[in-house]
Design a protein around this nucleic acid. Structure first.
Lengths: 124, 124
DNA sequence: TATAGTGTACTAGTAATCTATTACACGCAT
DNA sequence: ATGCGTGTAATAGATTACTAGTACACTATA
């Protein structure tokens, strides 16, 4: 996995797991890969994995069962909130940054439109 | 100034200066506040300011004149690239994150629309 | 009961970031 | 020439993030 060295690895792993859950690659109630396996997969130390997971446990996103593994919560409220936050955060960032550059709402729409067209063109 | 403790302060200051330039609060050729003054304003050490500025100098965004101060470049190409990058970056982040959640282009447009409406409502 | 697979805890060492402090280099006005 | 305002450099210490390694705790199953 590629990490941005401007942000703590444990935090990027947190986001990675959250995204796996939101996108459905880790279903509600599913078991998360073992900490030692994750450490291998992400080429990172077990302690770093542990740090990321323990925060997800504190947040209620994961449930830890000693001797068994870590599991995705089945709490629908938590899962819904997770998805909402994952969508809102980048929107807020976009809005704030472009507003700081004095772009109007219309110019933001246009910028997104242009960007989408560009990306769709590239992926042909 | 409020800093995100997940990202190095020197990097956040870099972005802060870049934004001041792009938004026009620091015009082309204008003098950047003295390093000691910036350190006071941002309640940060002079070394940290220096680290941020020296990278902006390396990038060609600022020009350093020993004994005189740091000045915004007058190179139109550099300034234009700065603005472009500042707009593209959050767009790319939005697109990538929402695409990872399996949102379509139309859903992205709709999400932005909803978000803008929400923000404009709040600011009344 | 033994073993394999799981989470958890602890210590030690390295590297990066930030602070504090001091000193030096340059340009300009008095 | 002096002094003030500027950028620059260098050292030492605190804190955090990460790695490496070891050990322990719990569960299920052969």
């Amino acid at each position: 996995m590629e990490f941005d060295d401007k942000v703590p690895i444990y935090y990027q792993i947190e986001e990675y797991i959250r995204q796996q859950i939101i996108s459905g690659q880790l279903a509600a109630g599913a078991q998360v890969p073992a900490v030692r396996q994750l450490a291998l997969d992400l080429t990172v130390n077990v302690n770093t994995i542990q740090r990321a997971l323990s925060h997800l446990v504190q947040t209620g996103v994961l449930v830890s069962k000693r001797g068994l593994g870590n599991f995705v919560t089945t709490d629908a409220h938590v899962l819904a909130a997770l998805r909402t936050a994952a969508i809102q955060a980048p929107l807020a960032q976009l809005y704030d940054r472009l507003a700081a550059l004095n772009l109007t709402a219309d110019e933001m729409r246009a910028a997104l439109e242009t960007y989408i067209a560009q990306r769709e063109k590239e992926s042909e």
